[in-house]
């Protein structure tokens, strides 16, 4: 009796493991697509190629949502990892919101088509790079939470580092924007875009903070 039960137990475990890995893949892929999207917008404006990246991120976000719901349902209906499932739930939901923020920022560019003057484009792309690096480290940290708990703090540390770097750059960019000769409405408009990109790194940092606590809780 218990044999068949355990057999299905491991099959389900494998399924769930795949879903989790898939979810993290979607978040990290979302980061890459987001970076390409911003690069394309900065170099060529709101082209069809840019729209394609937007839809790519949009699709990733939808899949991630589905995966997240499926994982959460399984964790609770099969009473798996009873000690950590609340934490895993929190982790998945906050990571999902990172993906939401990336999608939202791209939608902003697509709908509002801000006019980014040449002199700010480089910094915009640099900011995006740092933000995506922080998201990348976050995904690595989250994977480590499941596989190699001791490595989590290394990744978290890097998330914090890239978030600080992104903050510095966003402050620099905003100063440059408001120090320029652009009309005030343009300045305010551009600032909102700097913030929408920088917010992603802030959210990544918040998730990393949670992850640090979950890691302490998950001692044997």
């Amino acid at each position: 009796m218990s044999d068949t039960k355990d057999f299905t137990l491991f099959r389900r475990t494998k399924e769930l493991e795949n879903e989790l890995d898939n979810f993290f893949n979607k978040v990290s892929e979302g980061g890459l697509a987001f970076r390409f999207g911003i690069q394309i917008y900065m170099n060529h404006g709101p082209t069809a190629e840019f729209e394609e990246k937007l839809y790519h991120v949009n699709a990733l976000e939808n899949t991630a949502d589905t995966l997240r719901r499926s994982i959460e349902t399984k964790l609770y209906s099969q009473t798996l990892i009873p000690e950590s499932r609340g934490d895993v739930l929190g982790l998945l939901e906050t990571m999902d919101s990172v993906l939401n923020l990336m999608e939202g920022a791209l939608w902003g560019f697509s709908i509002e088509t801000p006019d980014v003057p040449e002199e700010f484009r480089r910094d915009f792309m640099e900011l995006t790079d740092r933000v995506v690096l922080s998201v990348d480290e976050l995904v690595k940290g989250a994977r480590a939470f499941f596989r190699n708990i001791e490595a989590v703090s290394d990744h978290n540390h890097k998330v914090m580092f890239y978030e600080k770097e992104a903050d510095k750059l966003s402050t620099k960019l905003k100063r440059a924007i408001f120090g320029s000769k652009l009309p005030l409405p343009n300045k305010v408009h551009l600032r909102s875009f700097v913030e929408s990109v920088d917010n992603i790194a802030d959210q990544a940092e918040d998730v990393a903070d949670r992850l640090a606590i979950y890691t302490i809780k998950r001692t044997v």
Binding site: L9, V88, F146
Partner: peptide, 25 residues
Amino acid sequence: TVRVIRALKLHLLYLDAYTRLGLIL
């Protein structure tokens, strides 16, 4: 046990499944 688990680097889900199986056995 702590040493072995650290050395094996088991996935949380598998650790959970093995622990459950261990508890049942």
